[in-house]
């Protein structure tokens, strides 16, 4: 790890100002940033710790949505009665992230700001058509994810909370990479008033919606319908753990499993 200056602001405004002034990195749970710093792969001169900001905490039911503070830990979400009651798929997704140590430190806001191509939360945000609330604005899910490790966030923009509309049915099915257990393919399926959304993580450079699956499931919200969809392998990731064709195949299989578990 290279030397850096640590800041612990007491308000979102101060945090944003520090980020703007120093060009530093915001620190949420540190499960990606700190690891990269220890490996000397990331070299921020300034780190702005968000853990003291009360405004970023808390999980609440707000009308037809569940609002989750950005600094909520995966473990908080997994065990939240509000989440389990309204959108059990979110609690289940949180329970499947990393291991217990990661879940006790890592946060939803940190994960979304980082936008790792194999992270779980982006699939939920995109699949449920959530809204990302920042210190500056509200960003709809469809506009938030911009590519590998890229989001709509400006350098001094901080996620405050994420608002998830409560669906009729939803579920997340993850096929883990056998080594890292990140999603090799993770599919979030949601059925709600406006229709069906299917978001896929792990398979490409960034989370994406799978239109053929959405269309098929809109016609028939069944596992068989999902499994019958042949997903295009073009543009999907190729690595030691899966070819594009394998990932494309798994998208249908995991979508079908998600539909089954959505009930």
């Amino acid at each position: 790890m290279y030397p850096f200056e640590l800041h612990r602001p007491a308000s979102i405004a101060d945090a944003a100002a520090l980020l703007a002034k120093t060009g530093g990195k915001a620190l949420a749970g540190g499960q990606s940033l700190v690891a990269a710093m220890k490996l000397r792969l990331a070299q921020p001169g300034h780190v702005v710790d968000l853990s003291g900001l009360a405004e970023l905490k808390g999980i609440r039911r707000e009308g037809d949505a569940v609002s989750i503070g950005a600094m909520s830990r995966h473990a908080d979400i997994a065990s939240s009665d509000v989440v389990k009651g309204a959108i059990p798929a979110l609690a289940a997704l949180a329970e499947g992230i990393g291991d217990r140590q990661v879940r006790n430190v890592g946060t939803i806001g940190g994960s979304l700001a980082n936008n790792d191509p194999a992270a779980d939360w982006p699939a939920a945000v995109l699949g449920l058509n959530a809204t990302v609330h920042t210190n500056k604005r509200k960003v709809p899910a469809d506009e938030y994810f911009r590519g590998m490790y890229e989001t709509a966030l400006a350098d001094d923009e901080i996620i405050v909370s994420v608002s998830f509309p409560v669906p009729k049915k939803a579920a997340y099915a993850k096929f883990p990479n056998p080594a890292s257990r990140f999603a090799l393919v993770g599919v979030f399926v949601a059925l709600s008033g406006p229709g069906v959304r299917v978001a896929v993580t792990g398979a490409a450079s960034s989370v994406f919606r799978c239109k053929p699956l959405e269309d098929a499931l809109a016609r028939s919200f069944t596992a068989a319908a999902a499994k019958a969809v042949k997903v295009d392998a073009a543009g999907l990731n190729a690595d030691l753990h899966g070819s594009p064709a394998y990932r494309a195949h798994l998208v249908s299989v995991m979508a079908a499993r998600a539909v089954t578990s959505a009930g």
Binding site: A179, S180, L240
Partner: peptide, 11 residues
Amino acid sequence: LLTGSYMDYAM
């Protein structure tokens, strides 16, 4: 080495 960490070397 492509399997240089537990991200890619499956234990």
